[in-house]
Amino acid sequence: MTHPIEIQCLIKASPEKVWKALTDKIEMKKWYFDIQDFELVVGTVFNFYEPGEHKKYHHVGEILDVNPLKKLSYTWTYPDFTDEKTYIIWELEERENNETLVKVIHHDTEKFYDLGENFSRKSFAEGWNGILNQSLKPYLEKI
Rank of each mutant, 00 (worst) to 15 (best):
K70S: 06
E94P: 11
L69M: 07
Y49W: 12
L64W: 09
L64N: 05
F48A: 00
P79Q: 00
L92M: 11
E53F: 11
Y87G: 00
E50S: 03
V60Q: 15
N67Y: 14
L92F: 06
K56C: 06
E93K: 15
N98I: 04
T86V: 09
F81D: 09
L64A: 02
T75A: 05
I63T: 04
I88S: 09
W76S: 01
H54A: 04
F46T: 07
E94C: 10
E84M: 14
T82G: 08
P79D: 07
D83C: 03
D83R: 05
Y57C: 02
E84D: 13
E94L: 11
D83Q: 13
N97Y: 01
W90H: 08
T82E: 12
E50I: 01
K70Q: 15
Y78K: 02
P51H: 09
V45L: 15
F46Y: 08
Y57D: 10
P51Y: 06
D65R: 15
E62K: 15
S73P: 08
P68F: 08
G52Q: 01
H54S: 10
N67R: 15
K85R: 10
H58I: 00
F48K: 04
L72A: 05
E99K: 15
F46E: 09
T77Y: 05
F81V: 06
P51A: 00
E96W: 02
L64S: 01
T77L: 12
E84N: 14
W90A: 05
W90P: 02
G52D: 02
L72Q: 03
F48V: 01
D83V: 02
G61Y: 03
Y49D: 01
L92R: 11
I63C: 08
L69N: 07
D65K: 15
D80T: 11
K70A: 08
L69S: 03
E96A: 07
T82L: 03
H59Y: 13
P79E: 10
S73I: 06
E99Y: 15
P68A: 09
H59T: 08
P79V: 01
T44R: 14
T75D: 07
D83T: 05
F48M: 04
T44H: 14
N67A: 13
D83W: 04
L92Q: 13
Y74Q: 06
V45N: 15
N67H: 14
N67V: 14
T75L: 13
Y49K: 10
G52L: 02
Y87I: 00
F48N: 00
R95Y: 11
K56A: 07
Y57H: 13
K85C: 07
F46D: 01
F48P: 00
T44Q: 14
E91D: 12
I89T: 08
E96P: 03
E91M: 09
W76I: 05
Y87V: 02
W90G: 02
L92A: 09
T77S: 12
L92T: 08
S73H: 13
K56R: 13
Y87R: 11
V66A: 06
K70R: 15
H58Q: 00
Y49M: 03
E94T: 06
P79R: 01
